[in-house]
């Protein structure tokens, strides 16, 4: 069974000028352990998709099932229940949004475990810290006292500490510099290899391609292509995908004067 199954999802916002259709019959599924990248540029509806999956935006039509539970109709209390089961966690672009600014790293990491009523909290925290390569000395710090890269690694650690089966990532590396980006991506890759399903939503195909099994291209509210990464990249079908692939700067084709590409 799919871990995440989105079927014919429609979202529109009411505007004074009428309805603004943001997502149109979006269908997407994610099997346990699978990593799917959803790529979309400004106005594609990708943020709305992320927010709708998390229950922050109401779907106009369609169904979103997480681990068999239809979440589109869940009440906040039922959502909390689902999160308590530790099925789904999320990481945003700006860790200051996913971390409580008044909680120390220790409390931020302990909170999801306390909610679950888990035992051996301290042990679990030390283990996860090692996994995201953060020093124990940071446990007493507030998010504001960490560097951007450290903060994002705390946010990832918090998402992982309950060992969720699905992690939703909304632009998790866009705000980071290269060194931190590589570290967070490495971490996500390890997570993927350990069998966690990842839904990686980003505008930047260049930072998603390398860890996604499949790429779904979101354009003007519709998924125009959803195929294995290698196929999307080497043989894009939709005209927009072709334009997108041509546009992404790569080192292979870095030298435009030799369009056949440079030897690996």
């Amino acid at each position: 069974m799919s871990l995440l199954e989105i079927t014919d999802l429609d979202v529109h916002y009411r505007r004074r000028t009428g309805r603004l259709h943001v997502l149109r019959s979006v269908s997407l599924s994610l099997s346990p352990g699978e990593t799917v990248g959803v790529i979309g540029e400004t106005g594609s509806g990708k943020s709305t998709l992320a927010r709708t999956i998390l229950g922050l935006v109401k779907a106009s039509a369609g169904r979103i099932a997480i681990d068999g539970t239809d979440v589109a109709s869940l009440k906040p209390r039922q959502w909390r229940e689902l999160r308590r089961r530790g099925v789904v966690q999320y990481v945003f672009q700006d860790p200051l949004r996913s971390l409580d600014p008044d909680l120390t790293v220790l409390d931020s990491l302990a909170e999801p475990l306390r909610i679950q009523g888990a035992a051996g909290i301290r042990d679990k925290i030390l283990k996860i810290l090692a996994r995201v390569r953060l020093d124990e000395a940071l446990l007493d710090r507030l998010p504001g006292e960490l560097s951007g890269g450290q903060r994002q690694r705390v946010a990832v650690a918090r998402a992982l500490i309950t060992e969720p089966r699905l992690v939703l990532l909304d632009e998790p590396v866009s705000a980071l510099d290269s060194a931190n980006r590589v570290q967070v991506l490495e971490l996500l890759k390890e997570l993927r290899d350990a069998g966690t399903a990842l839904l990686f939503i980003s505008h930047d195909l260049g930072s998603v391609a390398g860890i996604a099994d499949r790429i779904a291209v979101l354009y003007e509210g519709e998924i125009v292509e959803d195929r294995p990464s290698a196929d999307v990249i080497n043989a894009p079908v939709h005209p927009y995908t072709r334009k997108l692939i041509r546009s992404v700067p790569t080192l292979r084709r870095a030298d435009r004067r030799t369009p056949e590409g440079i030897p690996a």
């Binding site: 590589v182 860890i211 990464s229 990249i233 790569t250 080192l251 590409g261």
Partner: peptide, 12 residues
């Protein structure tokens, strides 16, 4: 780029 970008898949 080589590990996480399109480069991994590009057929040269």
């Amino acid at each position: 780029h080589e590990s996480y970008g399109l480069e991994r898949y590009l057929v040269t």
